[in-house]
Simulated scan of single mutants.
Amino acid sequence: MMPPHLTVYYNTRCPVCDAGIDWQRNKLLALVRAGTVEFRDINEQPDALARLGVTLDDVRRRLHATDEGGRLIVGADVAIALWRLTPGEGWLAALFGNRVAVPVTRFAYDWFADVLFAWNRWSGRW
């Protein structure tokens, strides 16, 4: 069975985001080469998700992705989807993405994303 297609939009101007996605992309190299997973810099395509009501700052604040059906995935749910696809990281998806833990995972992700977004704005990274 083929894994689902996932297109991840992220902010390369954030050093933490860029390094994290670079690390994840290297772990998913076979899926990236097969076209199953794509990583796109939102700064190169600022209106890429406008049709879904997503702004440039939305993506600079949190990871966004679209699945094979064009459905939007946001924040911690993107990380969980990537962990499910990444060899050896399924346990992270099971631990942080189960129905009991996912509300806490989303809260922690959103808190960290908000702090990181504020830091990047303060640092003048856009």
Score class of each variant (00 low, 15 high):
1 M>C: 14
1 M>F: 15
2 M>A: 15
3 P>N: 13
4 P>A: 13
4 P>M: 14
6 L>D: 08
7 T>H: 05
7 T>V: 11
9 Y>D: 05
10 Y>G: 03
10 Y>A: 01
11 N>C: 11
12 T>E: 09
12 T>I: 04
13 R>W: 07
15 P>Q: 00
17 C>T: 06
18 D>A: 13
18 D>C: 11
19 A>K: 13
20 G>M: 12
21 I>M: 12
21 I>Q: 01
21 I>P: 08
22 D>W: 02
23 W>N: 10
24 Q>G: 00
24 Q>T: 12
24 Q>P: 01
24 Q>V: 10
24 Q>H: 04
25 R>C: 06
25 R>N: 04
26 N>E: 14
28 L>C: 06
28 L>E: 00
28 L>N: 10
29 L>V: 05
29 L>W: 01
29 L>M: 08
31 L>K: 14
32 V>Q: 02
32 V>C: 02
33 R>E: 06
34 A>Y: 07
34 A>F: 06
35 G>S: 03
36 T>Q: 14
37 V>F: 02
37 V>Q: 05
37 V>N: 06
39 F>M: 12
39 F>D: 09
39 F>S: 10
40 R>K: 15
41 D>Q: 05
43 N>E: 13
44 E>T: 14
44 E>I: 08
44 E>Y: 07
45 Q>F: 11
46 P>M: 12
46 P>A: 11
48 A>I: 05
48 A>C: 06
49 L>S: 02
49 L>G: 01
49 L>V: 04
50 A>E: 11
51 R>H: 14
52 L>P: 01
55 T>P: 01
57 D>W: 02
58 D>P: 01
59 V>Y: 08
59 V>I: 12
59 V>P: 03
60 R>I: 05
61 R>G: 00
63 L>W: 10
63 L>S: 02
64 H>V: 06
64 H>A: 09
65 A>V: 04
66 T>K: 04
66 T>H: 01
69 G>S: 14
70 G>T: 07
70 G>E: 03
71 R>M: 09
72 L>A: 11
73 I>A: 01
74 V>K: 10
74 V>T: 13
75 G>H: 01
75 G>W: 04
76 A>E: 00
76 A>H: 03
76 A>N: 07
77 D>P: 08
77 D>V: 09
80 I>A: 00
80 I>P: 00
80 I>D: 00
81 A>G: 02
81 A>P: 07
81 A>V: 12
82 L>K: 07
82 L>Y: 00
82 L>D: 00
83 W>A: 14
83 W>Q: 03
84 R>D: 10
85 L>R: 09
87 P>A: 12
87 P>V: 02
88 G>P: 02
88 G>K: 04
89 E>K: 08
89 E>I: 00
89 E>N: 01
89 E>W: 14
91 W>S: 06
93 A>N: 06
93 A>S: 12
94 A>S: 10
96 F>V: 08
97 G>R: 11
97 G>N: 09
98 N>A: 09
100 V>R: 14
100 V>C: 11
102 V>K: 15
102 V>Q: 08
103 P>M: 09
104 V>C: 08
104 V>Y: 10
104 V>R: 08
105 T>C: 12
106 R>T: 08
106 R>K: 14
108 A>C: 15
108 A>H: 10
109 Y>Q: 09
109 Y>F: 12
110 D>S: 09
110 D>M: 11
111 W>F: 15
112 F>Q: 15
112 F>W: 15
113 A>I: 07
113 A>T: 01
116 L>W: 11
117 F>C: 07
121 R>H: 13
121 R>D: 06
122 W>S: 14
122 W>G: 13
125 R>Y: 06
